[in-house]
């Protein structure tokens, strides 16, 4: 029983970290650009496919990681520059529809390019072993993933709280007009932040590939859970996203293991409850 619990906890943590990487980009994009990017899940899958192709060509996991991250960043920045930028002034429904349109287009383009089969990228030999801790063996790769997630959380948090660019990002979350008044090239900053978000999603895709596999439809699966995480954590709130990712990731993993019928019921219920608790008693005009 204890073994089972420990194993599920580790699985839950790994899943949580993947969710956090996805939520990080989505939340940051929303906080700063006020855009809800429903194509975010597509960047996860895109990263995985980019990584797959790179791995097939080079058989190097590191190459896969680099290609996935850079590739997702480039596509993300192109999307932002070519289309999204015009939509910052539009209402959220328009943005939701536009990005949903791109999500559908990306999904089918990926289906055309990589087919409908389920693929996977093997864990690199260096990390394929198991680590012996306190009488239990843990797959090294999964431990590393948890480490990467926590490290990225700390790094992003520090970057936003402690650096000049971070201060600028925080300021533009709070007041966009003020920052552009200061003469910073806010448009370029937006593009970079968007690109950073999609890059991290791509990274999550390639890192997650050995665990989740790569298949059409995965993009929308992760998108939905990520949206839940971001909503529960509070849109634009990085540390909120981290804790929410842990909550949702663990809840879903335990739920699936213990009571499979209700697992997704629980996370949707959790989101509804969080939304309602936050809105309760407040005047509707205060609720964005």
């Amino acid at each position: 029983m204890l073994d089972f619990l420990i194993a599920q906890t580790l699985n839950g943590l790994v899943y949580s970290m993947l969710l956090f990487l996805l939520a990080l980009g989505l939340s940051l994009t929303f906080g700063m650009l006020r855009v809800i990017n429903l194509a975010h899940g597509a960047f996860y899958l895109m990263g995985a496919y980019f990584g797959l192709t790179a791995w097939n060509l080079t058989h190097s996991f590191w190459a896969a990681i680099i290609v996935a991250t850079v590739g997702a960043a480039i596509v993300g920045m192109l999307l932002e520059r070519s289309w999204l930028q015009r939509f910052y002034v539009r209402n959220e429904l328009d943005q939701v529809i536009l990005t949903f349109g791109f999500a559908l287009v990306f999904a089918d383009i990926m289906k055309m390019l990589w087919g409908k089969d389920i693929h996977s990228i093997p864990v690199p030999p260096l990390l394929s072993g198991a680590v012996h801790i306190a009488g239990t063996y843990f797959p090294a790769y999964r431990l590393i993933l948890v480490g990467v997630g926590v490290a990225l959380f700390v790094a992003t948090w520090l970057a936003i709280e402690r650096t000049r660019t971070g201060a600028l990002i925080r300021a533009s979350v709070a007041d966009r007009v003020m920052v552009s008044g200061l003469g910073f090239n806010i448009r370029l900053l937006f593009t970079y932040v968007f690109g950073f978000g999609t890059a991290i999603a791509g990274l999550a895709g390639v890192l997650g590939a050995p665990i989740t596999g790569i298949y059409p439809g995965l993009d929308f699966e992760v998108l939905i859970t990520t949206l839940i995480v971001v909503v529960v954590g509070g849109l634009g709130n990085i540390s909120g996203a981290f804790w929410a990712a842990l909550l949702i990731g663990l809840a879903e993993t335990y739920g699936k293991a213990l009571y499979p019928a209700a697992a997704s019921f629980i996370i949707f219920g959790l989101m509804a409850a969080v939304l309602l608790i936050r809105a309760w008693g407040r005047d509707e005009e205060d609720v964005e």
Binding site: E92, F265, L275, V287, E288
Partner: peptide, 24 residues
């Protein structure tokens, strides 16, 4: 009680709960 994007998300959540109920 919610508006905008949050209304969208909560109606989505309730609908998915209906779906899961039908499914399970």
């Amino acid at each position: 009680r919610l508006s905008g994007f949050y209304f969208l998300m909560i109606t989505f959540a309730f609908a998915q709960m209906v779906f899961v109920a039908a499914f399970r």
